[in-house]
Design a protein around this nucleic acid. Structure first.
Lengths: 360, 360
DNA sequence: CCGCCGAGGGAAATCGATTACCCTTGCCGA
DNA sequence: TCGGCAAGGGTAATCGATTTCCCTCGGCGG
């Protein structure tokens, strides 16, 4: 922590005197702080309209705004909602964060966004810090199992798990797409076209969204008589899905029976795989078709070769707010809020087919 | 704001009793809260080693962590640093935010990230809220002119402007690339290859990074004798650069003398333009070459047709922390910290040239 | 022996807002 | 006329941590 210099301290104090406090408002309006506070908080039957107006006038004249800190201390709860994202560099998560932020703002809440980098220790640090800030709720976009998460759950904190169910308790409040269903949807589309030979690229499958997507995909394929045990799967090292996808595709290309359709359990994996395929001289689409999950907002613009299950980023904010209201309203274990996913088919040629029209 | 139900209130109080306070630590250690506080804050000559150890033991046993709120109230300064980003959905900004967050964490600070959506009123709301939170500093990644920004500047708040200089005072602390130089760098590369006929796509030029990029580009071209007044420029409606780029490219394509090289003042503009060009049946690269700015991290993977000036996202965090230390150390108007930009040429064929090797 | 100083530590004020509790006034029904 | 009650509003406790005073005790120089 930066040691505040004396100069700094002085300027801080000096600045503080410029920021009006409730006491100054009260003095100016000729009322007590209690009354001023009540007017601000709209407590009924505690002030005549005339008194209230005097207070409001003082507020306007001084440019007063209640200090969040004093309020939080007294109420033992701030207006901050902590959002812990597993990886901000993933455009899909950033889009979700943006949506959350917008919706929280509509509720008069403030988002504090952190990046856990998929690490349990970092997530713990943030959870503890958020609790110290008396946050009103924590939204975990891609949570990992960790001790502080257990503490928070046990303490009854308001927690909402997004995109990846609570690794420690599947019945915790969840908002996100139905990953199993999304996997099944890709399976259905493949089967429709008679595709039975595919490859799968994945990153970690340990309690991630990918785990469930794969489950849905395989279950549906198996139901159609496909021998899923024979489906080649590849992965790559590292937490960065793009790099993992690049290496996984390298592995896949070494197989003598390279499948014509590659399902990647996230768009980022597909990005890495795409590059690897092109380096190998393959045409995409044409020689190989890719399916992904998330459907990042930039896909329609620059990745028209990628068919992907759309995760409706903009719907997350409202859904999460809805979930928060249910929790604050007293619901103990609200049902998961499943957002509608939809498979976008952009550009899918099996080898030998002609080029279709561009689709957004 | 959600009205807290009674049930909620009860559980909140109940929960509070579970979270240990400094007083409980002090009681358990058999010292006063003053002493406990001093041990925690490492005040010298205020406790024997034995006393200090008793306090530390109590902290461990109770799992105590200082509440940020009480501390902030007393110190009139929290450990939060507000980061106001103009558009989180822009992957380049998200990457910068991620870098900032990581560096702040290393300083024991916490990032609170907001999305101003390029709107002055939203930015104002957030600036005011951040000030009410007693944030230690505000980082504005793409600021717009607004009243609350003026207030904060006048009040002597610690402000750092990133990527786009302070629209209200060019001498405010700035961290970012040298946009003028970046524009000039593209000009140089174009002139080297003998390209003198280009088109420019831009979004708003009103005190944005684009303004300076364009300035650098045109100045250098003019110096080489190019008539910059004759260079076709196009823009599109909306704040979303992708959509703006799409429409701007549409305009550009209507010109009889469509230039073979299009310089887009941001990568997002280029993404939109790319799609428009492909819809028009153009080969990219080949029929038209694109240059952009920012060089989003995904470019090497899925946008190898885009030549772009790399903005080193990962360097922002450390540079901003450096700037903060200078400001807190008492420097009144630190020099801007200019990060090294570099033009990445990926895939640039002028019409008629043969295909080069793929480059990251 | 006196005074001073530094180390160690406690009591209480403080930050800003909320709220429990109390007081006054006026009105209404019994 | 009296009790009760509601409206209007003030006093002071409270939240948790920091920090300013203040006190005590030993040691040391004069």
């Amino acid at each position: 922590m930066p040691p505040p210099s004396d100069r700094n301290r002085a300027s801080r104090t000096e600045r503080a005197s410029l920021v009006p406090s409730l006491a100054q408002v009260a003095a100016r309006a000729g009322v007590s702080v209690a009354t001023a506070s009540r007017v601000i908080n709209g407590v009924a039957n505690k002030a005549t309209e005339e008194t209230a107006e005097r207070v409001r006038a003082a507020i306007r004249e001084l440019g007063y705004r209640p200090g969040s800190v004093g309020r939080a201390l007294r109420r033992r709860e701030s207006r901050i909602v902590g959002v812990l994202a597993a990886n901000l560099a993933n455009p899909s998560m950033a889009a979700i964060a943006s949506s959350i932020e917008w919706s929280l703002r509509g509720e008069g809440l403030v988002m504090s966004l952190c990046d856990t980098h998929e690490r349990a220790d970092v997530q713990d640090e943030y959870i503890r810090e958020m609790r110290a800030q008396l946050v009103r709720a924590m939204i975990l976009v891609g949570a990992v199992d960790s001790p502080a998460l257990d503490e928070a759950r046990a303490a009854g904190d308001t927690l909402v798990f997004v995109n990846r169910p609570d690794p420690g308790d599947p019945s915790s409040p969840y908002v996100g797409i139905d990953n199993v269903g999304a996997g099944a949807e890709i399976a259905d589309r493949l089967l429709e076209r008679g595709v039975r030979r595919i490859g799968v690229l994945h990153a970690s499958l340990d309690r991630t969204a990918g785990h469930w997507r794969l489950l849905g995909l395989f279950d549906r394929l198996a139901a159609a008589g496909v021998d899923t045990a024979a489906i080649p799967c590849a992965t790559g090292p590292g937490l960065d899905h793009i790099v993992a996808g690049y290496h996984a595709m390298g592995t896949m290309l070494e197989r003598p029976d390279r499948p014509p359709v590659i399902v990647c359990l996230s768009d980022l994996l597909a990005y890495g795989a795409y590059r690897r395929a092109r380096e190998a001289g393959l045409e995409v689409p044409g020689d190989v078709a890719f399916f992904g999950f998330d459907d990042n907002p930039i896909n329609p613009w620059i990745a028209d070769w990628l068919n992907s299950v759309r995760v409706p980023s903009d719907d997350f904010g409202p859904a999460i707010v809805e979930m928060l209201h249910r929790l604050w309203g007293g619901e103990e274990r609200p049902d998961p809020l499943l957002l509608a996913h939809q498979l976008t088919i952009r550009n899918w040629r099996l080898p030998g087919e002609t080029e279709p029209v561009l689709r957004r």
